[in-house]
Amino acid sequence: MKDAREQIFASIREALQTLPERKPHPGPPSGAADPRWLAEETDAAALFLKRAAAAGTKVFTDAEACADWLRGLSARVVLLAENVTELTVDALSFAEVVSVFDRNDPDRIDASVTRAAAAIAETGTVVLTDETTPDRLAALAPWTHVVVVRRGEIHRSVADALAALPDDPNVIWVTGPSKTADVEGILIQGVHGPGEQAVLLI
């Protein structure tokens, strides 16, 4: 018996043989996928904040305001990733601050603060990678997740972000809190991931 790979490729080639010619690639989309309002937006940071808020993400441009918000949520245990310098243990003195996610007690941590690799203005998206978020669970399991983005890291469009996709085993774009509308079309936040997603733009 031919192996499965060989068999599938033979079937594909046989199927395609009947085509008089094969459709060429239409070429790079060069802006075709950009929403029509994107060109008018010149300030990437302002657009990012606006779109992130529209997607249900809390936005902060001031570390102190962000820490106050966490305190207001009565976060008692906060995971502060080691590569975050914008928020400090001192700023989070109201909480017990830890740096490691314990998978044996996944719900102990109320909030986590981790670093983004990049962001996308068009959609208000933050980009996480294994490089900047070594423990995927730390940015996913806690109810509240704050991700720190620097202004220089914002891509203007989805197309720009795709052109700059990092070479990383896992890149994830996060646009708002985890949500579902499976039950009667009613929107509920915080299904498996954060119910509160926030960004701190510095």
Binding site: P35, R51, A55, V100, F101, R103, E122, T123, T125, D130, P134, D135, R136, L137, V158, L165, D167, D168, P169, N170, V171, I172, W173, V174, T175, G176, P177, S178, K179, A181, G193
Partner: peptide, 24 residues
């Protein structure tokens, strides 16, 4: 699909997580 600009989580997977990573 859902009238969203982008789905909340859009994940790009190249392969296994690097050795020594705590998750993945």
């Amino acid at each position: 699909a859902t009238g969203q600009q982008l789905t909340v989580y859009t994940e790009f997977i190249q392969g296994p997580a690097g050795s020594g990573r705590p998750s993945g």
